[in-house]
């Protein structure tokens, strides 16, 4: 490996590590917010960490976004969750990422608003699928309508935020690449 490509590889690893930290920070912020007292839905989150994943997906690459998402899920599961919650997060994150990949092919006319709503809805659906497979019954799907409605609200808020900040981040991301 040449020195130039080794340097690029090291730079990329350092940037991904920094982005992972950003994602974990956003996830930790969600842990601190007592949302379950307001909206008692299992697995309900604001989806702040999705800000990091979407920003990385668009301004860097899908591979970097996959790394950031995977590291975030693993770290949060190990630090603040259990094996069960880790399984839920993995399924949610996986389905959300697949939807994101699909939208990057067929949904480029959407803004971050629509992408974030669909991504949040996919994340919640993935978690319900995890619950169904874990408990061996489809009764859990009764939570899904409320989670989908919540994903429209909070996914929409995150999406509007991304609509505002992504153009401002783009020049800085270009310098890092």
């Amino acid at each position: 490996m040449s020195i130039m490509s080794q340097g690029r590889r090291t730079r990329r690893i350092a940037i991904d590590a920094m982005l992972c930290t950003f994602a974990v920070m956003l996830s930790y912020l969600e842990v601190l917010l007592p949302l379950s007292a307001l909206i008692p839905l299992p697995g309900f989150r604001l989806g702040l960490a999705n800000i990091a994943v979407l920003v990385v997906f668009c301004l860097f690459s899908p591979i970097d976004a996959a790394v950031v998402s995977a590291v975030r899920i693993l770290l949060m599961g190990l630090l603040f969750g259990s094996t069960t919650s880790l399984y839920f997060s993995v399924m949610g994150g996986l389905l959300s990422f697949l939807v994101l990949l699909l939208l990057s092919r067929i949904g480029k006319k959407c803004s971050f608003f629509g992408v974030s709503v669909l991504s949040a809805a996919a994340h919640n659906t993935g978690q319900i699928i995890a619950a169904v497979t874990l408990f061996g019954t489809s009764l859990i799907t009764s939570y899904l309508p409320a989670l989908l409605l919540a994903s429209v609200v909070y996914g929409g808020i995150v999406g509007l935020l991304l609509n505002l900040i992504t153009p401002k981040l783009q020049p800085h991301a270009a310098k890092l690449r």
Binding site: C58, K109, C110, L149, G159
Partner: peptide, 21 residues
């Protein structure tokens, strides 16, 4: 990259999710 202004496609996406709910 995706667009940064809300579009008709976003409304369709929201409608799909609401319909599913």
């Amino acid at each position: 990259m995706f667009r940064t202004r809300v579009t008709v496609r976003d409304a369709i996406a929201v409608a799909v999710v609401l319909f599913a709910a």
